[in-house]
Design a protein around this nucleic acid. Structure first.
Lengths: 215, 215
DNA sequence: CCTACCGATCGGTAGG
DNA sequence: CCTACCGATCGGTAGG
């Protein structure tokens, strides 16, 4: 109820005005994720922004650069989310929970560009393509190192197959892009904690309980 | 070293001659998986088969029908692999291993069409689209039922979140299409057993071992 | 299975 | 940011 003079549009309070370039980037992420890169025309994209196809080129240099930047940003977000955990002093199981939560949060907060990241990177030029596989290797190694740390600490099973374990964890957190609904009743934290609980403790019942026994 | 008269081409011994239609289907799976549906032209497809673009239409009715059949077949393979397990009398943990092995085997034996199944189904017409989501629901329910059975039997933890557990399992087996290499040193059975072991028993060490302690 | 072609649409540019 | 346009390519067809 407080007056805020010289601020005519209340929408401008919540978010600073987005540059046209940023708007194009955002709509492109949505369309590329919904229809795929090649099935989205520059005229489709322009239409959603209320302009003509040719007008886009006043703001961007080309369709592929748009894709490259969407994929690049997504990759950097994954990397940034996990990077600060490398030097984290906590034990491996706590770090695994935290890493999975951050990883899923990146997916959840960027459903569109995460989908583009996973589906459309093969349409990039060889240079950008190589950069993406580099990011993915970095993330893979992060989880492998984490598992090795846990084994060395004695928190994880000594007979663990590190490669396979990292694959399993990556499957869980990446696949979220196919089913997670940001507006739903599950937060990224819920998912991460549920997954970590199952992964760390296992699905199997701790003791051989009698079937049908009541407490 | 035995003579086989009236069989001039030894390649015909291993595999019966594939119909042209089947060849088209096979090459289309590969191209759609490598480049995506919309980035593959009918002329690309025809070129790989040594014919002109227009000639394809003597064998098939259209591009989308090709996609629909590839996706349909993949869906049916997943369904068929798990269907016979519904009535299997084994305990849930054994059935889970078996289901994961069969599921991963379908992915591994059909890397191309599995990739198309996971990436290109959104380009189908609404009718075919609905059919695919139906298949996916069926598979999802299979794993949920399996988890419920395991809880009822007392083999699985009673506090298990069935939906999340099914999601975790599906993540593991489906994501294999992104990294599995059919010619490599890991069989689908290796992957399934490794995954099942980690999922059932958990990553955590059974007892609190001393870090650095030697046996 | 080929040649020749159809209308439609593509990414991108010139000039304003 | 628009109008008008470029050459290229698309899925598909006619007629043989």
């Amino acid at each position: 109820m407080t007056d805020l003079p010289a601020s005519p549009d209340p929408a401008e309070l919540a978010a600073p005005p987005k540059s046209r370039r940023e708007q194009i980037h955002e709509v492109a992420s949505r369309l590329f994720s919904e229809r795929g890169y090649h099935a989205t025309s520059m005229r489709d994209l322009a239409g959603e922004l209320g302009m003509q196809g040719g007008s886009l080129y006043a703001h961007i240099s080309g369709k592929e650069d748009l894709l490259m930047e969407i994929v690049d940003r997504a990759a950097r977000q994954f990397d940034a989310a996990l990077f600060t955990l490398r030097e984290d002093p906590r034990p491996a199981d706590a770090k695994l929970r935290e890493a999975m939560e951050r990883h899923i949060r990146v997916v959840a907060d960027n459903m569109d560009s995460a989908t583009v990241f996973f589906h459309e990177w093969k349409h990039l030029s060889p240079g950008a393509y190589a950069r993406v596989t580099g990011w993915r290797d970095t993330i893979d190694h992060f989880y492998r190192d984490l598992l090795r740390q846990g084994i060395a600490e004695g928190h994880f099973r000594a007979d663990l197959d590190v490669k396979m374990g990292a694959n399993l964890i990556l499957s869980a957190v990446n696949w979220a892009y196919t089913w997670y609904h940001p507006g739903g009743n599950l937060t990224p934290r819920d998912v991460a904690e549920g997954y970590a609980e199952m992964l760390l403790g296992g699905l199997r019942a701790p003791a051989a309980a009698e079937p049908g026994a009541s407490p």
